[in-house]
Amino acid sequence: MLELIIAGLTMGSIYALLALAINIIYSTTGIINFAHGELVMLGGMFGIVLVVNSGLPIIAGMFIACGMVAMIAITLYYSTIRPFGDNLTSSLGWLMATLGAGIIFRNVAMLIWGTQPRPFPPLGSEELINVLGVRILPHEIWTLVITFLIAIFFTVVLDKTMLGSAIKATASNRNATRLMGISVERMVLACFTMSGAVAAVAGFLISPIVFAGPEMTATIGLKGFGAAIIGGLGSSRGAFAGGIMLGVLEALSMTMVTPGYKDAIAFLIMILAITIKPEGIFGVAYEKKV
């Protein structure tokens, strides 16, 4: 049981890490980047190139990968979201476009690196340590800690700083935000940069657990969306809680069904959560204005 919960916490923190980055983009644009899973995957693949193939230290490799994925996230913004202008919520063009970008990223990665998943060095030592009688990798603890720190960072940025207010203002009314002398474009770019950097970190943290390969985030990416929604889109606290919750519930469900159904259970939880409480645990429901 405890083993399951710890395994669930590890996967949960990964989902949370994705959810946090998905959230930061939602906070400023009101949309979901459906290519986010693929950005994470690219982070992992850059890790393979920089750390495994070129022998850079993990931390150095992670910083460089953060920069690279952030650049790709910005390109993604200009090619799939920017063309739809200010009124993003009125159509779902961006949804299709980001989905399309995800397909491109994944298949280009397959062309370059092949489909074979590869091992990836973990953070910290490779020796198992004993926590409450369960043997785990230090990497798993690192994953949880880093996710938690990023969640706190985003909460502080969004709720306590001027930048956070400007980001949220951008989401609610772009023209009014412009009239306040805030560059909407810069806010959106700042968020895509942060989101890309966090995606790269996620890639480095996930790869040692699931192996690095173009398909590594095929379902994890979707669960990241699920986690963000379960917690309540726009809330960093919610993203963290939603991710952990989804991970633990998914792990616990393994006591009842065979492992092959794991993804099915996770998506069932997501569907139920969206249907029952679309505003999420930490979100607020608003009455639609006419």
């Binding site: 949309i31 979707l222 929604i229 159904y261 993804d263 997501m270 969206i274 249907t275 679309p278």
Partner: peptide, 29 residues
């Protein structure tokens, strides 16, 4: 279609994607 009574847009997209994955997994398992 039942969830559409409450949600639409990207929520619905995720629900339908999730549904597809569930069907795929159940067919295999």
């Amino acid at each position: 279609g039942a969830p559409t009574l409450k949600v639409s847009g990207h929520y619905l997209a995720l629900i339908t994607i999730g549904f597809g994955v569930i069907v795929e997994k159940v067919l295999i398992e």
